[in-house]
């Protein structure tokens, strides 16, 4: 009995310490953003109410959300067919696909952007006047720098691969497809109405983790000279410290809540067997 309660105290201790480490900075950040706890500042919610009117906020956030949407679409469009194919038709390609998806882990974002910027610098010199030049220019369009989508997609591949692959492993894809085919469903319908709905949880999870990645991504965008959300936060931190902290915390909390909602919804649809 003594052992049991000791274990329980131990658990409580670990949880308490962990909670303190992870919640105190967030709490302090909120306190800081409303002016509490720092001398010579009056408490107020100006940092929050003023965000919408702050210069560059809407632009950077819109840009980021557009980038996120495009990245999520591209990631899913590349991965879902590949993973389904690997499971159903070409199991021998599995290792290749896994390696390809894990490759970006070997190249840190900074190294990746070094390579990308080199391509962008050298390309125009060699291809001036050709369609390649125009393509490279289009990639770097200030309103929608598609080059960021490409980089983010690469960076999201390892994570997205693991999430989706786990999701596909959790369902018996072959059985589902064979059952659908036995009911004479054509291939496109099988994929759209049988396979995808069963992967809903994994798809949403992938989407929101990718969103988190794009929302917080700083390295590539900053070095290539664009100003999405994270870069904007850093840019205003000098002049409006409170607001930059406020926006940071909001970004974290909103993403967390979104992921939590996805996780909860996913569980509700797929009750885990208790055995």
């Amino acid at each position: 009995m003594a052992g049991l309660s000791r274990i329980r105290y131990g658990r409580a201790f670990v949880l308490l310490l962990t909670g303190a480490y992870f919640l105190v900075p967030l709490a302090c950040a909120v306190a800081f953003s409303i002016g509490a706890g720092t001398p010579g500042r009056s408490i107020g919610f100006g940092a929050y109410t003023g965000v919408l009117g702050a210069g560059g906020f809407t632009d950077s956030l819109t840009l980021t959300l557009k980038l996120a949407a495009a990245t999520i679409a591209l990631v899913l469009a590349l991965l879902v067919p590949a993973l389904v194919t690997v499971r159903l038709a070409a199991p021998r390609l599995r290792t290749l696909v896994e390696i390809v998806c894990m490759l970006p882990l070997v190249v840190p974002a900074v190294a990746l952007v070094a390579g990308i910027s080199a391509v962008l610098r050298w390309g125009p010199d060699h291809f001036a006047g050709t369609p390649v030049f125009q393509a490279l220019a289009a990639l770097q369009d200030q309103n929608f720098p598609f080059v960021l989508v490409l980089a983010y997609t690469l960076m999201a591949l390892p994570l997205a691969y693991r999430t989706l692959d786990a999701g596909i492993a959790a369902i018996d894809l072959r059985m589902l497809v064979e059952a659908a085919r036995a009911c004479r469903a054509p291939w496109p319908r099988t994929l759209l109405q049988v396979v995808l709905p069963n992967l809903r949880g994994a798809l949403l999870n992938t989407a929101f983790l990718t969103l988190a990645l794009v929302l917080g991504e700083y390295t590539v965008a900053a070095i290539l000279g664009y100003q999405p959300f994270a870069v904007w936060i850093l840019a205003i931190s000098g002049s409006q410290a409170q607001m930059s902290v406020a926006v940071s915390v909001m970004g974290l909390l909103v993403t967390w809540v979104l992921l939590l909602v996805v996780a909860t919804a996913g569980r509700a649809h797929h009750p885990k067997e208790t055995s």
Binding site: L213, L215, I233, L234
Partner: peptide
């Protein structure tokens, strides 16, 4: 999420 918001917190 990336380092910027964490650093700011």
């Amino acid at each position: 999420f990336g380092g910027v918001p964490l650093a700011f917190a």
